[in-house]
Nucleic acid binder design. Sequence first.
DNA 1: ATCCTAATTAAGAAAGATTATTAATAAGGA
DNA 2: TCCTTATTAATAATCTTTCTTAATTAGGAT
Lengths: 131, 131
Amino acid sequence: MAVTRNTIQRDLVLQAVLDLKNHPTPEEVYEHIRKQHPTISKGTVYRNLNVLVDKGLLLKVDVPDSANRVDHTLKSHYHIRCKTCGKVFDMDMPDMTGEIKSMIRDTKGFEIEKYGLFFTGVCPECSKEKE
Amino acid sequence: MAVTRNTIQRDLVLQAVLDLKNHPTPEEVYEHIRKQHPTISKGTVYRNLNVLVDKGLLLKVDVPDSANRVDHTLKSHYHIRCKTCGKVFDMDMPDMTGEIKSMIRDTKGFEIEKYGLFFTGVCPECSKEKE
DNA sequence: ATCCTAATTAAGAAAGATTATTAATAAGGA
DNA sequence: TCCTTATTAATAATCTTTCTTAATTAGGAT
């Protein structure tokens, strides 16, 4: 990454994620900012989210079969997506980095950089409605 | 799922995955079949891969930031993607389903259906070329 | 304070992955 | 052989994300 400048848009993107709290999608961040700044561009939101993730100010959450999300919580934790309503929630479980690393028998020369652990299920709300 | 019929296309899709062995993308499956059956449609490949996954004959592999893949190996195992060349490899580590389940403190009323554990890194080939 | 340069922007096109639509075909039970 | 409906090929559409381009602007140098 070369030099980065402080722009209003970058601040708006970071602030939007902090305001929206729970793992917003880039689309949600875009819509949130648009209320006050209707001319912001979606590409700007995507680009700045990536910059902020690269800088370590946000965490990227990879969500299978759906738009990715960003998390303002920097502490390692895991997520679950309801396959019915699509919402993403935090899992209540401790960090497993140590356990997972210790289970790798042979890296086969790979430089392992990161891992993702992600759950899928049905949230209580949607469970109820099925009856 | 309603009644399913046995079609030539379905067989071709399954056989292609078995032939290609390592976690092909739908695109790769499509290209493989096309060599012998140039009129097969990409939609047919996607649909049948989904049907075969639903039937439990193949495993779906969710790959962050890239096309998903299917695996002909049905035994639970994990994958790593080289962020440089994009190739996907098997991890050499035992199943962790028990450990992961036992770490969940509170499901908060969620019906947890499945989890995915996925690694990212740089493969030995690409590591070498960086020097 | 003014200049300069490269990072950044808005707007929109483009790319990649996947699903939906539609009319025609065909699997497989009656 | 007939009938119903799952399935197909072809293609459009959708969703997510990145890229392109000309104009703007941040912030260090003058």
